[in-house]
Design a protein around this nucleic acid. Structure first.
Length: 186
DNA sequence: GCCAACGTTGGC
DNA sequence: GCCAACGTTGGC
């Protein structure tokens, strides 16, 4: 359903400034059929790749992200069919353990509307959601997980968002980075 | 609009 | 447990 017409200018939940700088390209319009790549982090004690693998349809809602840059990647960047590395943070060792696919594009994170949820955020309204999520489906467990340590050894991966924006729970991965890491995992 | 204080992430 | 790197908040 298209948004209701309003007499007042539409107030967007997005930050006023468009996301600029190095990562703006990953939110830019795409060529038809272009696929992009991402990385999501999860603490295995909270939700591991195995947990996802055992979930119905090997699929989950990537809810609870409360950082606006990560939100923008989910709301505006991630498209159906994009591939996603699943990274274990706060793990020993921290590493990429699996591959997922985006199966549903950005939609409002309803955990923000639930006062009973750990992720409740009173500022997020149903008619103007602050927070978004995507659905991802696990497609492959890496034969050999790729550790953060190993990634840091590779000059070609030194500009990875995972390394540069180290606290972001959702980040873009370039085609070259994707290929390099997939190769390392085989 | 500045910036100090505070909170969170996450590697080590 | 420590602390660096940031994002957010709020006083002014």
């Amino acid at each position: 359903m298209p948004p209701k017409k309003s007499s007042s200018p539409k107030k967007s939940a997005a930050p006023a400034a468009p996301y600029t700088g190095k990562w703006a390209a990953v939110l830019a319009p795409r060529q038809k059929g272009e696929k992009r790549h991402w990385l999501v982090k999860s603490e295995p004690e909270t939700f591991s790749f195995d947990d996802l693998w055992k979930s119905p349809g090997r699929t989950t809602h990537w809810h609870g992200v409360r950082n606006s840059t990560a939100r923008n990647f989910m709301r505006d960047g991630m498209k159906k069919g994009d591939t996603v590395f699943f990274y274990h943070s706060m793990a020993d060792p921290p590493q990429i353990v699996g591959i997922c696919e985006v199966v549903r594009e950005g939609y409002p994170d309803d955990s923000a509307f639930d006062p009973g949820s750990d992720y409740f955020d009173a500022r997020s309204k149903r008619d103007a959601p602050t927070w978004y999520m995507v659905d991802v489906k696990a497609t492959k467990r890496l034969k050999s997980p790729v550790t953060l340590h190993a990634i840091k050894q590779i000059p070609a991966l030194s500009e990875m968002a995972l390394v540069r924006l180290s606290r972001l729970s959702v980040s873009p991965v370039t085609q070259a980075e994707w290929d390099t890491i997939v190769e390392m995992s085989e």
